[in-house]
Design a protein around this nucleic acid. Sequence first.
DNA 1: TGCAATTAAATTGCAAACAATTTAATTTTA
DNA 2: TAAAATTAAATTGTTTGCAATTTAATTGCA
Lengths: 143, 143
Amino acid sequence: MNQLKLENQLCFPFYAISRQITALYRPLLEPLDLTYPQYLVLLVLWEHKNLSVKELGKKLLLDSGTLTPLLKRMEQDGLVNRQRDKADERVVFVSLTNKGIELENEAKDIPFKLASCLALSMEEFFSLKAQLDKLMETTSALK
Amino acid sequence: MNQLKLENQLCFPFYAISRQITALYRPLLEPLDLTYPQYLVLLVLWEHKNLSVKELGKKLLLDSGTLTPLLKRMEQDGLVNRQRDKADERVVFVSLTNKGIELENEAKDIPFKLASCLALSMEEFFSLKAQLDKLMETTSALK
DNA sequence: TGCAATTAAATTGCAAACAATTTAATTTTA
DNA sequence: TAAAATTAAATTGTTTGCAATTTAATTGCA
């Protein structure tokens, strides 16, 4: 088997599916005026209220080079507040505005709508999820 | 189960693993002066010699908005030739230069090196590949 | 034939993504 | 305590990725 053929690669499907999934989110997120990475930030903040850029980056595997401009755009859009920690001026805390909090309700159907696009059975879903989580652990450890 | 929690999502692992894998490729591709998307273009051209931008885009799921500048950079780097089809001036064919052809030999170990990073058994590899291929088919059909 | 529709690339503009560097604050340690 | 090391964000510069539009060529069909 020729390993240099695209069809024999495992990595290309990850690259392609990742972009396809983002494309599936687009029409669902557009009414909320969100991009997929912005939606991910909101997912985390709906759960954790108040996080530093560092902590947010740890959960999303993104660094400040990506997050700072992204968060500034979200601040511009009135979704989040950014403020320096009084106790440690290096740290910037990110929290939700009322508008950001209220979006949770409008977004609550999105995971179901998207899951239905993927057309997986419960078994397939959980099996795949387990394999991805394992792979995620492997690749995260290689940092 | 709260579907709006990051940890319960299937899509986030795809997004994150995709970027992690690209990060794993980086040190392998850097000596060849390639980015991951450029490497993908070469994978296709090593197999198919001569393709239009359209055909290349079909294989990689990328449009001319992404490919045109990417291919221009690869042309600048002396990896590919771009020339308009004489028979149909709308079409641009992309082919490899000698330098591009020769890179295949230098790249031939990359898939194995990368596969070893992922630490999957043969069974896991093929099982995962099958599930991804199926998902890919599903999401591609939703275009 | 000749105009409308279609097609393939290219272009424009914007949002990520990330390496590398910089800035400023805090901690360590000599 | 003061300089060195570390840390957190921000900044800079480059490459992707994609929607939307434009340009130019070809095809279809009235």
